[in-house]
Design a protein around this nucleic acid. Structure first.
Length: 412
RNA sequence: GCGGGUGUAGCUCAGUUGGUUAGAGCGCGGGUUUGUGGUACCUGAGGUCGCCGGUUCGAAGCCGGUCACUCGCCCCA
């Protein structure tokens, strides 16, 4: 038979892998809930505008990485490449603007048509939080603290660095952008091909170029901090102050830029160097203009998204699928007698499996393989005496007991 | 979209300058064991050598193409 395969960059998740994903998701949802972020679920695809308007025409996510298609009614739809736009759209649709602030958490698959790499897939999962309706820098600090606690819960904080920057408000950013472009124009001949392209599309991106020549040029480039107006400047100072109060370590990275148009002011990334080039594990920032871009009223917002696959790669945890007890009968007919026994055990919260086939030898081999702790054995002798043989598979000790006695022992 | 590396059994990998029937370990099945597992021994199954084409008397190994994986770039979580 010819092997069927999955679509490139779209992977199966087998139990031992899903196990780590679940650790990540559960930790994220739990800590979010404690911070009073309520779980929300939004569609996996939307009208394309939901994403194209906020993300910006210059972003690759919109121009070349999208999964766009038309449905039977000729509506142009898009598989979601990220979560924030959809959450804000849902928030606006539900009229929750009447009841601010709103705090949401979400998790689920996102889709980007990219070249797959380690920690980067075409269908990948994100877990994120959004805090809507608070313009105070306190909200920025809050979501970063939440992200920090999340990574702490996963026991990977020692491998993580938090980098923050301010992109300023719209005016500051515009002024800075102009002066940066002005500066870079003088070096046009020396800039890398990629950066040259970015010069007209998204000049801020040149700041985090990995090209060595570019790096040299950038070193003497004007800094965003020189162009922050008072409001923007105090904001980033307040954010730093808050992090200090929480004893959260961070680095100011003036070259940290966000790729998506809707970001402003605070931008941050939790990164690791354990995952090769895909080091960003949780990232976000403030997006005060997003709601307006979607056609809604001005609503300030701040949030982040974390890559579940990337975090799962860092989590240390082995998948052990052990079982409390197996039930083995002497012959196939006894399986019927074992069914209600298994049901009872399961009702008592005891993980059980009847081993249906094979002779005793085979059944015990399987019991061993699936890491069973105990076996309940039912043969002719036991039926005559109206008991079960209960075996401790670690010690090999066997005794004749009735079901209630067995349950008592198993629950100890 | 661009560049590098890789592709042999379920998994990890050998396979000499191209040579006849492609191997190992682990795992899997059967047995030694007709009421008892782990250990040990015996034994068996499992391969279009990613795919297509070319060179050759002969290709797992060489050449071209293609697909997939992987690392980096772009981009991003």
């Amino acid at each position: 038979m010819r092997k069927l395969r999955t679509v490139r960059g779209v992977n199966d998740l087998l139990p031992y892998e899903l196990h780590k994903h679940n650790i990540v998701v559960n930790a994220g949802l739990e800590i979010s809930e404690k911070y009073n972020y309520s779980q929300i679920e939004i569609p996996i695809f939307e009208f394309s505008e939901v994403f194209t308007k906020p993300l910006g025409k210059s972003s690759d996510i919109v121009t070349k990485e999208n999964y766009i298609f038309k449905d039977r009614s000729e509506d142009e739809l898009m598989l979601r490449p990220e979560g924030t736009s959809g959450v804000v759209r849902a928030f606006l649709n539900a009229g929750l603007i009447q009841d601010l602030p709103q705090r949401f958490s979400y998790n689920g698959p996102m889709f980007r048509y990219e070249r797959p790499q380690k920690g980067r897939l075409r269908q990948f999962k994100q877990l994120g939080v959004e805090c809507l309706g608070l313009s105070s820098p306190m909200a920025d600090i809050e979501v970063m603290s939440l992200g920090h606690d999340f990574l702490d819960k996963l026991n990977i904080l020692d491998k993580i660095t938090l980098k923050i920057n301010s992109l300023g408000d719209f005016d500051s950013r515009k002024n800075y952008r102009d002066s940066l472009v002005n500066y870079l124009r003088d070096y046009q001949s020396k800039l890398s091909k990629d950066s040259l392209r970015r010069l007209s599309i998204n000049p801020l991106r040149i700041l985090d170029s990995k090209n060595e020549e570019d790096q040299k040029i950038i070193q003497n480039a004007p800094s965003i901090f020189e162009y922050l107006n008072i409001d923007s400047k105090t904001r980033i100072e307040d954010v730093c102050k808050g992090l200090d109060h929480l004893n959260i370590k961070y680095q100011i990275d003036k070259n940290l830029v966000r790729g998506l148009d809707y970001y402003c002011h605070t931008a941050f990334e939790f990164t690791t160097n354990e995952l090769g080039t895909q080091g960003t594990v949780l990232a976000g920032g403030r997006y005060d203009g997003l709601s307006k871009m979607l056609g809604g009223p001005d609503v300030p917002g701040v949030g982040w998204a974390a890559g579940i696959e990337r975090l799962a790669l860092m989590v240390q945890s082995e998948f052990v699928n052990a079982i409390d007890v197996v039930l083995v009968g002497q012959c196939e007919n006894f399986n019927y007698l074992l069914l209600p026994i298994m049901k009872k055990l399961i009702q008592e919260g005891i993980k059980s499996e009847i081993i249906y086939t094979g002779n005793f030898s085979k059944k015990f081999k399987r019991a061993n393989k699936i890491k069973a702790s105990y076996a309940i054995i039912l043969g002719k002798e036991e039926i005559d005496k109206k008991v079960f043989k209960f075996k401790d598979l670690t010690s090999g000790f066997e005794e004749l007991l009735n079901l209630n006695q067995i349950i008592k022992k198993l629950k100890n």
